[in-house]
Design a protein around this nucleic acid. Structure first.
Lengths: 229, 229
DNA sequence: GCAAAAGTGTTGAGTTTACACCCATGT
DNA sequence: ACATGGGTGTAAACTCAACACTTTTGC
């Protein structure tokens, strides 16, 4: 049981890169940074960092996300491990990609500025270093899958939201349009939304009801992975 | 662009563990080995090995699978990276789990014996080292997902097979039973099966037609991830 | 009073499920 | 001739997609 059993094998640098999604009411965005060190300093990149011996990889991912956004305990999921030999010109680095869903308004603006971070429309990505574009593409596919049978879309919306905002989110994720009546009926039939008495009046004269999200019913559905859309 | 940029970060041993699924006509099986080295020597384990600097992680996974089964170019997919600090008492080892689907009869019996490998019914798993049981559970969930919208179930069957064998496979994967008529109709309606003139006569007097698998149509469906079951 | 977004039902098409009997053949 | 697994059709329930008008209210 000693720690010398495996001494003759190669060791690797282990990076964690975070695909951080947000939704601004219109389009789906990813949080990108201007890379602050070589190689590829100054280029657009995902937020990342290296894992350390004394933390689990999930902890490393959480640390890196906290570092950039100031946010803790947010939805985060391992996406894929990227391990091509030459993926990083700076060395043999294995990258673990994680994707996270955050509410744009919750993030810490100062921290974002410190890292030169910017929310970028997923349909208008700039050139990115290494295989980061591929990571984002894969994350987006995973998000689509996930959203279709888990209620994680709610992670991207403010606490209270209108049906129109929710629909806009789903439309952004799938890059398509839904029929308002069908969408409303389907979502409400799941019974995970709770209507408030309050209305959002900014975007219409009549005003649209706010909804929140019934955590108990949500949890029940989440386990069996109900079909959402 | 030099290779010294990252020198101050921790380095990790990177294991690759393979969840190898097979189907014997009745039940879904995983290929396990009796571990040949410390720690936990002699215990049941997944087949694994360490990644090397000069290979990609996918290559490492392929190498390890080839090593055990003698098989090349088989269906294999990265599952998840396991990175808890204390997952391996022999050291800080990050494990990349891959899952593979093979036809049991294709594998090299001698090689399997050399590794003390055994096909084990998924419903009757022995105690396994480390987090390997969790890996298998996750792989099984992924297999269910995958099989539902990709025609990968065929990877587990012999080249030609009867509808009954195919149904038995799906039933094993989902641990449920399907109605024969509904199953047949649905599968045939996809148009990826081609009926041969030949019949399998071993298990019935009338004989059941063999089918093979139309690769062209399969490829077309695979891309969009058609709904199978 | 009118512009602008909110809210709300129905119908037809297609899909899914449940269900049972005859067929071909080796013995 | 009979036992065994192979092969096939139909009807009811349900789900999904398409479609348009009335309501509210700030200006």
């Amino acid at each position: 049981m000693s720690r010398i059993e495996y001494k003759n094998y190669d060791r690797f640098l282990l990076a964690v890169d975070c695909i951080i999604f947000g939704f601004d009411g219109n389009s789906l965005k990813a949080l990108l940074i201007k890379r602050g060190f070589e190689p590829e300093k100054g280029k657009w990149s995902l937020m990342g960092g290296f894992a350390a011996q004394d933390e689990s990889i999930d902890q490393a991912a959480g640390r890196i996300l906290l570092n950039l956004t100031g946010l803790d305990q947010i939805y985060m999921e391992q996406l894929h491990c990227f391990g091509e030999v030459d993926r990083d010109p700076g060395g043999r680095v294995i990258s673990l990609a994680y994707f996270a869903l955050i509410k744009i308004d919750d993030s810490d603006g100062e921290k974002l500025e410190q890292h030169n971070a910017k929310w970028v429309d997923l349909r208008k990505l700039p050139a990115l270093i290494f295989d980061h574009r591929q990571m984002i593409r894969l994350a987006k596919e995973r998000l689509q899958q996930k959203v279709s049978n888990h209620p994680i879309g709610f992670e991207l919306l403010p606490h209270k939201f209108t049906l129109q905002q929710l629909q806009a989110l789903y439309e952004a994720v799938y890059e398509t349009n839904f029929d308002k009546r069908n969408f409303t009926r389907k979502i409400l039939s799941l019974g995970v939304l709770q209507r408030l008495d309050e209305k959002e009046k900014a975007s219409s004269k009549k005003g649209a009801f706010y909804y929140v999200f019934d955590k108990k019913k949500y949890k029940r559905l989440e386990s069996e992975g109900i079909k959402f859309i």
